[in-house]
Amino acid sequence: MTPTAHVIGDPIAQSKSPLIHGFWLDKLGIPGVYETRHVTRENLSDYLLEMRENPDWVGCNVTMPHKRAVMYEMYDVDHKAEAAGAVNTVLSQEDGTLLGTNTDIDGFLEPLREELKKQHYFRMARIIGTGGAARAIVWALAEEGFTLVLAGRNPDKAQAILDGLAPDGEHHVIHLDHFAEPTDFAFDDREGCLDLVVNASPLGMTGNPSLKFDWSHAPPGSIAYDIVTSPADTPFLQAARAAGHETINGFAMLIGQAAFAFEKFFGVAPPREHDVELMEMLTQ
Protein backbone atom coordinates (compact mmCIF):
# COMPACT_ATOMS: atom_id res chain seq x y z
CA MET A 1 0.00 0.00 0.00
CA THR A 2 1.23 3.47 -0.91
CA PRO A 3 -0.75 6.08 1.04
CA THR A 4 -2.21 8.51 -1.48
CA ALA A 5 -3.77 11.90 -0.80
CA HIS A 6 -4.98 14.75 -3.00
CA VAL A 7 -5.87 18.39 -2.85
CA ILE A 8 -9.09 19.15 -4.70
CA GLY A 9 -10.58 22.39 -5.93
CA ASP A 10 -11.76 24.37 -8.94
CA PRO A 11 -9.33 25.75 -10.08
CA ILE A 12 -6.49 23.75 -8.56
CA ALA A 13 -3.38 24.17 -10.74
CA GLN A 14 -2.15 27.02 -8.51
CA SER A 15 -2.02 24.88 -5.36
CA LYS A 16 1.31 24.64 -3.54
CA SER A 17 0.14 21.77 -1.34
CA PRO A 18 1.78 19.01 -3.43
CA LEU A 19 5.14 20.79 -3.10
CA ILE A 20 4.74 20.98 0.68
CA HIS A 21 3.67 17.38 1.24
CA GLY A 22 6.18 16.09 -1.32
CA PHE A 23 8.96 18.02 0.43
CA TRP A 24 8.09 16.40 3.78
CA LEU A 25 7.72 12.91 2.31
CA ASP A 26 11.15 13.26 0.70
CA LYS A 27 12.78 14.54 3.90
CA LEU A 28 11.30 11.66 5.91
CA GLY A 29 12.05 9.07 3.26
CA ILE A 30 8.67 7.44 3.60
CA PRO A 31 6.35 6.17 0.86
CA GLY A 32 3.44 8.38 -0.04
CA VAL A 33 1.80 10.28 -2.88
CA TYR A 34 0.16 13.70 -2.75
CA GLU A 35 -1.28 15.19 -5.94
CA THR A 36 -3.72 17.79 -7.24
CA ARG A 37 -7.12 16.76 -8.57
CA HIS A 38 -9.33 19.17 -10.46
CA VAL A 39 -12.82 18.56 -9.08
CA THR A 40 -15.83 20.65 -10.03
CA ARG A 41 -18.93 21.02 -7.89
CA GLU A 42 -20.81 18.78 -10.30
CA ASN A 43 -18.40 15.85 -9.92
CA LEU A 44 -17.54 16.24 -6.23
CA SER A 45 -19.76 13.31 -5.22
CA ASP A 46 -18.38 11.12 -8.00
CA TYR A 47 -14.80 11.89 -7.00
CA LEU A 48 -15.41 10.90 -3.38
CA LEU A 49 -17.28 7.75 -4.40
CA GLU A 50 -14.42 6.74 -6.69
CA MET A 51 -11.78 7.39 -4.05
CA ARG A 52 -13.62 5.37 -1.41
CA GLU A 53 -13.03 2.34 -3.64
CA ASN A 54 -9.27 2.99 -3.72
CA PRO A 55 -7.53 1.20 -0.80
CA ASP A 56 -4.48 3.48 -1.12
CA TRP A 57 -6.48 6.72 -0.78
CA VAL A 58 -6.17 8.18 2.73
CA GLY A 59 -8.04 11.43 2.12
CA CYS A 60 -7.80 14.85 0.58
CA ASN A 61 -7.46 18.51 1.32
CA VAL A 62 -10.27 20.73 0.07
CA THR A 63 -9.86 24.24 -1.25
CA MET A 64 -12.11 26.79 -2.93
CA PRO A 65 -14.96 26.53 -3.66
CA HIS A 66 -15.83 23.21 -1.99
CA LYS A 67 -15.23 23.73 1.74
CA ARG A 68 -18.94 24.11 2.46
CA ALA A 69 -20.34 21.72 -0.13
CA VAL A 70 -18.10 18.82 0.87
CA MET A 71 -19.55 18.83 4.39
CA TYR A 72 -22.73 17.30 3.03
CA GLU A 73 -20.77 14.40 1.54
CA MET A 74 -19.31 13.32 4.90
CA TYR A 75 -20.43 10.49 7.15
CA ASP A 76 -19.34 12.65 10.08
CA VAL A 77 -17.56 15.94 10.80
CA ASP A 78 -15.52 16.72 13.89
CA HIS A 79 -16.29 19.55 16.30
CA LYS A 80 -13.95 22.09 14.66
CA ALA A 81 -15.37 21.60 11.18
CA GLU A 82 -18.90 21.63 12.53
CA ALA A 83 -18.28 24.80 14.52
CA ALA A 84 -16.64 26.59 11.59
CA GLY A 85 -19.15 25.28 9.09
CA ALA A 86 -16.36 24.33 6.68
CA VAL A 87 -14.28 21.23 5.89
CA ASN A 88 -10.80 21.53 4.43
CA THR A 89 -9.59 17.98 5.12
CA VAL A 90 -11.37 14.71 4.34
CA LEU A 91 -10.12 11.53 6.01
CA SER A 92 -10.86 7.99 4.85
CA GLN A 93 -11.74 5.86 7.88
CA GLU A 94 -10.98 2.16 8.33
CA ASP A 95 -14.66 1.30 7.89
CA GLY A 96 -14.78 3.11 4.55
CA THR A 97 -16.66 6.16 5.80
CA LEU A 98 -15.47 9.76 5.38
CA LEU A 99 -14.68 12.15 8.23
CA GLY A 100 -14.48 15.88 7.65
CA THR A 101 -12.20 18.08 9.73
CA ASN A 102 -10.76 21.58 9.54
CA THR A 103 -7.01 22.13 9.84
CA ASP A 104 -7.34 25.74 8.63
CA ILE A 105 -8.18 26.74 12.20
CA ASP A 106 -4.96 25.45 13.76
CA GLY A 107 -2.95 26.47 10.70
CA PHE A 108 -4.21 30.04 10.86
CA LEU A 109 -3.54 30.37 14.59
CA GLU A 110 -0.08 28.77 14.50
CA PRO A 111 1.97 31.94 13.68
CA LEU A 112 -0.05 33.87 16.28
CA ARG A 113 0.43 31.43 19.17
CA GLU A 114 3.21 33.32 20.95
CA GLU A 115 1.22 36.57 20.80
CA LEU A 116 -1.95 34.81 21.95
CA LYS A 117 -0.17 33.53 25.05
CA LYS A 118 0.08 37.12 26.30
CA GLN A 119 -2.57 38.94 28.30
CA HIS A 120 -4.29 41.80 26.46
CA TYR A 121 -6.71 44.48 27.57
CA PHE A 122 -8.60 44.09 24.32
CA ARG A 123 -8.39 42.03 21.15
CA MET A 124 -9.95 43.13 17.85
CA ALA A 125 -9.77 41.65 14.36
CA ARG A 126 -10.92 43.19 11.10
CA ILE A 127 -11.62 40.25 8.79
CA ILE A 128 -12.21 40.62 5.07
CA GLY A 129 -14.10 37.80 3.36
CA THR A 130 -17.07 35.52 3.89
CA GLY A 131 -15.96 32.22 2.30
CA GLY A 132 -15.00 28.89 3.86
CA ALA A 133 -11.59 30.04 5.09
CA ALA A 134 -13.13 33.18 6.56
CA ARG A 135 -15.64 31.06 8.48
CA ALA A 136 -12.82 29.07 10.08
CA ILE A 137 -10.98 32.28 10.97
CA VAL A 138 -14.08 33.90 12.46
CA TRP A 139 -14.67 30.91 14.71
CA ALA A 140 -10.99 30.63 15.69
CA LEU A 141 -10.61 34.29 16.65
CA ALA A 142 -13.93 34.41 18.48
CA GLU A 143 -12.71 31.46 20.56
CA GLU A 144 -9.53 33.44 21.30
CA GLY A 145 -11.51 36.36 22.72
CA PHE A 146 -11.45 38.77 19.78
CA THR A 147 -14.10 41.33 18.99
CA LEU A 148 -14.68 40.96 15.25
CA VAL A 149 -15.46 43.31 12.39
CA LEU A 150 -16.41 41.19 9.39
CA ALA A 151 -16.38 42.88 5.99
CA GLY A 152 -17.86 41.50 2.79
CA ARG A 153 -19.70 42.49 -0.36
CA ASN A 154 -22.89 41.09 1.17
CA PRO A 155 -23.33 42.39 4.74
CA ASP A 156 -26.32 40.11 5.27
CA LYS A 157 -24.15 37.07 4.57
CA ALA A 158 -21.49 38.43 6.93
CA GLN A 159 -24.08 38.96 9.65
CA ALA A 160 -25.35 35.41 9.22
CA ILE A 161 -21.80 34.11 9.67
CA LEU A 162 -21.36 36.06 12.89
CA ASP A 163 -24.78 35.01 14.16
CA GLY A 164 -23.96 31.37 13.49
CA LEU A 165 -20.32 31.20 14.59
CA ALA A 166 -19.91 33.94 17.22
CA PRO A 167 -23.40 34.77 18.55
CA ASP A 168 -22.30 35.90 22.01
CA GLY A 169 -19.82 38.66 21.22
CA GLU A 170 -20.34 42.33 20.41
CA HIS A 171 -19.22 41.88 16.83
CA HIS A 172 -19.89 44.08 13.82
CA VAL A 173 -20.53 43.81 10.09
CA ILE A 174 -19.52 46.32 7.45
CA HIS A 175 -19.48 46.52 3.67
CA LEU A 176 -16.14 45.80 2.06
CA ASP A 177 -16.05 49.25 0.45
CA HIS A 178 -15.90 50.91 3.88
CA PHE A 179 -12.20 50.03 4.22
CA ALA A 180 -11.28 51.29 0.76
CA GLU A 181 -11.56 54.98 1.61
CA PRO A 182 -9.31 56.82 4.12
CA THR A 183 -10.57 57.62 7.58
CA ASP A 184 -9.53 60.33 10.01
CA PHE A 185 -10.59 58.27 13.02
CA ALA A 186 -8.21 58.96 15.92
CA PHE A 187 -7.30 55.64 17.51
CA ASP A 188 -6.59 55.70 21.22
CA ASP A 189 -3.40 54.39 22.80
CA ARG A 190 -3.36 50.72 21.76
CA GLU A 191 -0.62 49.61 24.14
CA GLY A 192 -1.63 46.31 25.69
CA CYS A 193 -4.11 45.58 22.88
CA LEU A 194 -3.90 43.10 20.04
CA ASP A 195 -5.25 44.21 16.66
CA LEU A 196 -5.37 42.06 13.52
CA VAL A 197 -6.32 42.88 9.95
CA VAL A 198 -6.94 39.65 8.06
CA ASN A 199 -7.53 39.20 4.35
CA ALA A 200 -9.48 35.94 4.29
CA SER A 201 -10.69 36.51 0.74
CA PRO A 202 -9.18 35.73 -2.69
CA LEU A 203 -8.83 39.46 -3.39
CA GLY A 204 -5.24 40.21 -4.31
CA MET A 205 -4.61 36.67 -5.52
CA THR A 206 -2.96 36.36 -8.92
CA GLY A 207 -5.66 36.80 -11.56
CA ASN A 208 -8.16 38.34 -9.12
CA PRO A 209 -9.01 41.99 -8.41
CA SER A 210 -6.85 43.71 -5.82
CA LEU A 211 -7.96 44.26 -2.25
CA LYS A 212 -8.60 47.94 -1.60
CA PHE A 213 -7.78 48.56 2.06
CA ASP A 214 -6.66 51.94 3.37
CA TRP A 215 -4.35 51.45 6.36
CA SER A 216 -5.74 54.49 8.14
CA HIS A 217 -8.39 51.98 9.33
CA ALA A 218 -5.83 49.99 11.31
CA PRO A 219 -4.69 51.01 14.80
CA PRO A 220 -0.96 51.48 15.40
CA GLY A 221 0.78 48.16 16.03
CA SER A 222 -1.73 46.09 14.11
CA ILE A 223 -0.66 42.79 12.54
CA ALA A 224 -1.57 42.33 8.88
CA TYR A 225 -2.30 38.72 7.91
CA ASP A 226 -3.03 37.74 4.30
CA ILE A 227 -4.02 34.13 3.56
CA VAL A 228 -3.33 34.62 -0.18
CA THR A 229 -0.26 32.65 -1.33
CA SER A 230 0.06 33.79 -4.95
CA PRO A 231 1.81 36.17 -4.85
CA ALA A 232 3.46 35.52 -1.51
CA ASP A 233 4.01 39.23 -0.88
CA THR A 234 0.72 40.86 -1.81
CA PRO A 235 0.13 44.58 -2.28
CA PHE A 236 -1.97 44.37 0.90
CA LEU A 237 1.08 43.23 2.89
CA GLN A 238 3.41 45.69 1.17
CA ALA A 239 1.13 48.59 2.06
CA ALA A 240 0.88 47.32 5.64
CA ARG A 241 4.66 47.33 6.05
CA ALA A 242 4.85 50.80 4.52
CA ALA A 243 2.40 51.91 7.20
CA GLY A 244 4.59 50.39 9.92
CA HIS A 245 2.73 47.15 10.61
CA GLU A 246 4.02 43.63 11.17
CA THR A 247 2.94 41.18 8.47
CA ILE A 248 2.22 37.46 8.11
CA ASN A 249 1.89 35.97 4.63
CA GLY A 250 -0.32 33.14 3.47
CA PHE A 251 2.42 30.52 3.49
CA ALA A 252 2.46 30.60 7.29
CA MET A 253 -1.14 29.37 7.38
CA LEU A 254 -0.67 27.08 4.38
CA ILE A 255 2.29 25.28 5.92
CA GLY A 256 0.62 25.18 9.34
CA GLN A 257 -2.63 23.64 8.12
CA ALA A 258 -0.72 21.25 5.86
CA ALA A 259 1.30 20.00 8.83
CA PHE A 260 -1.83 18.97 10.71
CA ALA A 261 -3.24 17.29 7.60
CA PHE A 262 0.05 15.53 6.77
CA GLU A 263 0.13 13.76 10.13
CA LYS A 264 -3.47 12.61 9.67
CA PHE A 265 -2.76 11.34 6.14
CA PHE A 266 0.62 9.68 6.61
CA GLY A 267 0.68 8.85 10.34
CA VAL A 268 3.82 10.81 11.22
CA ALA A 269 4.52 14.45 12.08
CA PRO A 270 6.24 16.43 9.30
CA PRO A 271 9.84 17.60 9.85
CA ARG A 272 9.16 21.21 10.78
CA GLU A 273 12.85 21.88 11.42
CA HIS A 274 13.09 22.41 7.65
CA ASP A 275 10.44 25.18 7.54
CA VAL A 276 12.91 27.87 6.44
CA GLU A 277 14.09 25.74 3.51
CA LEU A 278 10.48 24.92 2.63
CA MET A 279 9.46 28.58 2.72
CA GLU A 280 12.35 29.52 0.44
CA MET A 281 11.34 26.82 -2.03
CA LEU A 282 7.71 27.96 -2.07
CA THR A 283 8.54 31.62 -2.63
CA GLN A 284 11.00 31.12 -5.50
Rank of each mutant, 00 (worst) to 15 (best):
W57L: 04
R68M: 10
T103W: 01
K80D: 08
K80H: 12
P65H: 11
W57C: 06
T101S: 07
E115D: 14
A86G: 02
H79R: 15
L99M: 07
L109G: 01
W57A: 05
T101M: 12
A69T: 10
L99A: 01
G107F: 06
T97N: 07
D106M: 13
G85F: 09
D104H: 06
Q119H: 13
T89D: 06
V62P: 01
L116Q: 08
P55E: 11
K117M: 14
D106C: 07
D95M: 12
L98R: 09
Y72T: 10
D95H: 08
L116E: 05
T63E: 00
L109H: 03
T89E: 09
L109A: 00
Y72R: 15
N102R: 07
E94K: 15
D104T: 03
K117L: 14
G100N: 01
P111T: 10
F108A: 01
P55N: 09
A81Y: 06
R68A: 02
V77P: 00
P111K: 09
M74A: 00
N54F: 10
E110P: 05
V62N: 04
E82W: 11
E115L: 15
T101R: 09
T101G: 01
K67W: 10
G96A: 02
V58G: 02
G96S: 02
M64A: 09
P65C: 14
D76Q: 12
L116M: 11
A84I: 06
H66R: 08
T103P: 01
E73A: 10
V70W: 06
G85I: 05
D56A: 14
T103D: 00
A86S: 04
E114F: 13
A84T: 05
L112D: 02
D104M: 11
E115R: 15
A84R: 04
L91G: 06
E53H: 13
G96K: 03
Q93N: 03
V62S: 04
M64Y: 11
G107Y: 07
W57Y: 06
S92H: 14
L116P: 03
A69Y: 06
K118Q: 12
T101W: 05
C60S: 12
R113D: 08
P65R: 13
S92K: 15
D104F: 11
V58I: 14
Y75F: 11
R68E: 04
N88H: 11
E73G: 06
L116R: 10
K67D: 03
C60G: 07
L98H: 05
F108C: 02
Q93G: 06
K80G: 02
L109P: 00
E115F: 15
E53C: 11
E114L: 15
T63P: 00
M71A: 05
Q119I: 14
G107V: 13
V77H: 04
K117Q: 13
L98M: 09
N102T: 02
V70N: 02
L99W: 03
P65A: 12
A84M: 09
R68V: 04
V87H: 02
R68N: 02
